[in-house]
């Protein structure tokens, strides 16, 4: 694990490269974690960054598919992605086995950044939005600040199948839409309830998940005057600034940012999240 502390936003030069899958874990029937051997990416990636993977030598799917880096092991030279099967690209990704090579571009995008004043990091994840936040936690464990993760899912299955996220230094709140575990309701509702508790602490919010969740977090952060960073997911044609297909509205609505080259991590104040 790298000992760098992310106090500023970093951008690194992406490479067109290949990596060998060294481990595959089926987390749930449709959720997988792949460990990919790549010494450069494991060494230089920062939380929030992603890789863009080519999933076919044929013409479907044609474009690459982006995935957040969810963990790195710089000494051993591998990094991990955590993903859910939702279409043809992720279906193919789930079929890959250890030993196979994948064609990827990375690390891409910017990273979360931590203010030196921050005493507590509040992380809010919706579903697989936990992927980049898990990597952020990996960095934060080296720091003396407090960490709280709010993680919402529809059901309890992913919590049970993903004990990796638990850590003695982490205060963890689960929420489920069906009430099968933790708080019964939306993660944003719990977050809004709990946030006054941290009124007197210097906190920073880091969130990743579906857009409606991010919108709510953005609201809560603004109302409470808290510094907040959102990691966005948009469709991507290229991942490296060439197609202009990943636009995100600026707060004023008068211009666009681009998720792959200006993000995926944005200061919540700067952007308008689509519903």
């Amino acid at each position: 694990m790298t000992s760098d502390i992310i106090t500023t936003q970093v951008k690194t030069t992406a490479q067109l490269t290949t990596g060998k899958i060294i481990q595959k874990r089926m987390v749930l029937a449709d959720v997988f974690k792949l460990s990919i051997e790549h010494s450069r990416i494991s060494r230089i990636s920062k939380p929030g960054q992603f890789v863009n993977i080519k999933l076919s030598d044929q013409l479907t799917p044609l474009l690459r598919r982006p995935f957040s880096i969810t963990a790195v092991n710089a000494e051993a030279g591998w990094f991990e992605i955590l993903f859910k099967v939702i279409g043809e690209g992720t279906r193919r990704l789930a079929l890959l086995e250890p030993g196979e090579m994948i064609n990827l571009i990375g690390p891409l995008g910017n990273s979360f950044w931590l203010s030196s004043q921050t005493k507590r990091a509040l992380l809010v994840a919706g579903g697989l939005g936990v992927a980049p936040l898990a990597f952020l936690l990996q960095h934060l464990y080296q720091l003396k600040i407090k960490k709280t993760l709010f993680w919402g899912n529809q059901t309890k299955e992913l919590f049970l199948a993903y004990p990796e996220i638990k850590h003695s230094c982490l205060e963890l709140f689960y929420t489920t839409d069906d009430g099968s575990m933790g708080y019964h309701g939306l993660v944003t509702d719990l977050f809004a309830e709990v946030i006054p508790k941290f009124e007197h602490e210097a906190v920073q919010i880091f969130a990743c998940g579906p857009n409606p969740m991010l919108q709510k977090i953005q609201q809560v952060a603004t109302q409470n005057g808290i510094d907040c960073q959102l990691s966005l997911e948009t469709l991507m044609g290229c991942g490296f600034g060439a197609c202009m297909g990943c636009n995100v509205q600026s707060a004023s609505g008068e211009s666009y940012f681009y998720t792959c080259s200006d993000g995926p991590v944005f200061n919540a104040k700067d952007i308008k999240v689509d519903g």
Partner: peptide, 15 residues
């Protein structure tokens, strides 16, 4: 500034 999101969509062997 260009058009609103979404501006791209993948189609069979094209976009």
């Amino acid at each position: 500034i260009g058009n609103p999101y979404p501006r791209i969509a993948e189609t069979l062997a094209g976009m």
